[in-house]
Amino acid sequence: MAHDHDHQTENEGLMPNLEHDEHAHDDHGHHVHVTPFMPMLLVFVGLLCLTALTLWTAKAEYFYVSNSVNLTVALIIASFKGLLVAAFFMHLIYDKAINTVVVVASMFAVVLFITITMIDIGTQDMVDKTEKGEIAVGGSVQIQVDESGNRQVTRGVYSPFWSDNPGLSIVEQAKNDPENVKKYNKSHAHDDHSGDDHSGGDH
């Protein structure tokens, strides 16, 4: 009941005594756990710090290892942030365990879904490997637009798994492939930007 708490309206800056002060009771005597202030503030500050950490690891050049390593690091930090939000902001550690069970089950399903799908996608070429240089004609279309707004339609896609240089972007591979150079040059005859510009640049 509200008036049970009248005595502590202003001075609750410190960690409150959970047992006595911060449990409201309703008429049937069931406990309402009052959200404490200080832990939540600490969690919020922690989240801000972790955000800064994510930015630092992702943007500082000396921290760059490789695409996949940096993605993994970023996702681990994100998971930790998500865990903090779920445990404290979402009251999981205060609530009944069944709610945590629901979260764990859904996480399990997500992980299952993505990993098994990726296992398949990643091993598609293990047996059905075709010789390098074969490009499927017809089905695949890649669209590029040059500076004057003309639309270039290139056919054929390279999978990085078929390639000797999986680090290169797909079009780089296509361009470097002697089998394909002739076709590519023909379709880019008036395109001066078919060079190796890797920088990207901000529009």
Binding site: I116, I119, D120, G122, Q124
Partner: peptide, 19 residues
């Protein structure tokens, strides 16, 4: 939740097929 891939034995990768 573990067995959806058996609908795709002719389209997915052989490794996934076995699993």
């Amino acid at each position: 939740f573990l067995i959806w891939g058996h609908h795709m034995f002719t389209s997915e990768s052989p490794s996934a097929n076995v699993v």
